[in-house]
Write a protein that binds this DNA or RNA. Sequence first.
DNA 1: TGAAAGTCAATAAC
DNA 2: GTTATTGACTTTCA
Length: 233
Amino acid sequence: MDLYHNIYDDGFEDQRDPEYEILMENAQVQDFSDMNLPNYTAQAVEDMLSVERDYIDTKDLCLKILAELKGHNIPQELFATRIISRSQGTLSDLLGKPKPWEMLRAGRNTFKRMYNWMVQPYETRMAILFGDPVGTVAVSTPSPRNKRNKRQSSSPGDSAPKKPRLVFTETQKNALVKVFKETERPSSKMQKVIADHLHLDVSTVNNFFMNARRRRHRAARTSEEQDQEQYFQ
DNA sequence: TGAAAGTCAATAAC
DNA sequence: GTTATTGACTTTCA
């Protein structure tokens, strides 16, 4: 499917304008300090990004955002923090494997912000990304969640030492995958047996199956879509 | 209350 | 240096 199909009637700016063409040719351009970008207040930015939307073609949007970031050499880290108030890893995951709008719940908000950024004129998009908004936002909508701040703050200086991230050994991983192929939803009893056998916490085993189910279904959906696209070509 | 959804953030991969 | 992956935490929902 064409990346920019329906570009003229879906609310997105016409990206074939001369300015866009020049920028795409000079993808190295990254210094916006001398561009005289408009300076919005934090509240104005928030108002722009939080406009309600009834429906968003998430897949199409993500392709456009990816092209925009790549075309202008905008780091994901910057976009993630400035536009959606999320981490780089989360953004990468969302852009690479977007869930369809109808399957989203609270997560719609994140796509809504990406969409609302994308429909702005070029100068506004860059001003939001690189600008230094004045003032504060009256209602703190998308800020990182309270308890998450707690999680983030458990860094140097904190009394509780950070738990190192577990990486499954090859044996553990192989065994877990093997069981998963046979049963995606093992009973608590079975999970306990697996945990004991692999010298893992039951919660770790439970997390593995939870993540595996979610990620497998997402992968299945993606390949289904690809099949459909090939069929309709 | 348990499962699903949303996400963080370390770190693997490029 | 940047992006993708992924185990685990937090929030939402039935």
